[in-house]
């Protein structure tokens, strides 16, 4: 199987006036085509830093990211980020926010693309709304639409549902699996919610902190849609829980 994304031996230390923090140590993993990977770990273990390095928003001290075998330095068309907060542009409507990253398309093409993507995230009736008129869940869906519309090979998500209420989160999780299956994109999802990781992804990377390392990689063999109450699911969850905390 050919790997889309390869993370090779990443080290990252932050230097500041009051000292240094070793955030990541020798992180390596690969993501094969169409794979949905999640990264779990306690708060402060370096998940966001790792995702930002993959996104090209932060430089590692050592190691490299490659996409389809090519060294990736800085941000690229092949990756798009959904941040922890929606980060919408307050002066743009929902559709213009969603279209923010679209390049080199005619008006009609943009429109048809937006139609399908906004439908996918269930916002087709809110095209003209401004961010301040949206609930947190809707705003995060616009952020997801914006990232998907960019047509990246890899979708990077940093705890995208953590600010949502339980009900909305559950619905968005289903929608994300739906979107992944429809678009066939690679997804890397950072979360501190083990249940979420097991519900959504095919592989879970478990991180530990100080410095952040990958402690274990767990394959999730269940088919979709997943049932959280089976004994296998619960056993895996228990295994990971005892590993993370």
């Amino acid at each position: 199987m050919k790997s889309i994304l390869a993370v090779k031996n990443i080290n990252k230390t932050f230097y500041s006036d009051w000292g240094e923090v070793e955030a990541l140590r020798s992180i390596s993993f690969a993501c094969s085509k169409g794979e949905f990977i999640s990264i779990v770990g306690p708060s402060g273990c370096g998940k966001t830093t790792l995702l930002r390095i993959i996104a090209g928003l932060e430089n590692p001290n050592e190691g490299e990211i490659s996409i389809e075998g090519n060294h990736a330095k800085g941000p690229g068309n092949d990756r798009a980020v959904v941040f922890q907060d929606p980060r919408l542009f307050p002066w743009l409507t929902v559709e213009k926010n969603a279209a923010f990253g679209i390049q080199n398309l005619s008006k009609e093409e943009v429109k048809s693309k937006l139609d399908s993507i906004l439908k996918l995230v269930g916002l087709e009736n809110f095209r003209k709304a401004f961010p301040y008129e949206l609930s947190g869940g809707m705003a995060q869906r616009v952020a997801i639409a914006r990232a998907v519309a960019f047509k990246p090979k890899v979708l990077l998500m940093d705890e995208p549902f953590s600010a949502l209420d339980a009900q909305t989160r559950a619905r968005m999780q289903l929608e994300l699996v739906n979107l992944w299956q429809k678009t066939g994109k690679n997804i890397i999802l950072v979360t501190h919610d083990i249940n979420e990781a097991l519900l959504l992804s095919q592989k879970v990377l478990i991180m530990s902190s100080s410095p952040g390392t990958i402690k274990e990689t767990v394959e999730v063999p269940f088919s979709y849609p997943r049932d959280v109450d089976t004994t296998e699911f619960l056993r895996l969850k228990k295994h990971i829980t005892s590993n993370v905390f």
Binding site: L57, P75, G76, A80, V81, F83, R87, F100, G101
Partner: peptide, 9 residues
């Protein structure tokens, strides 16, 4: 927001 702009090239 600048970072969003950066990530969208």
């Amino acid at each position: 927001l600048i970072e969003v702009g950066r990530s969208f090239m």
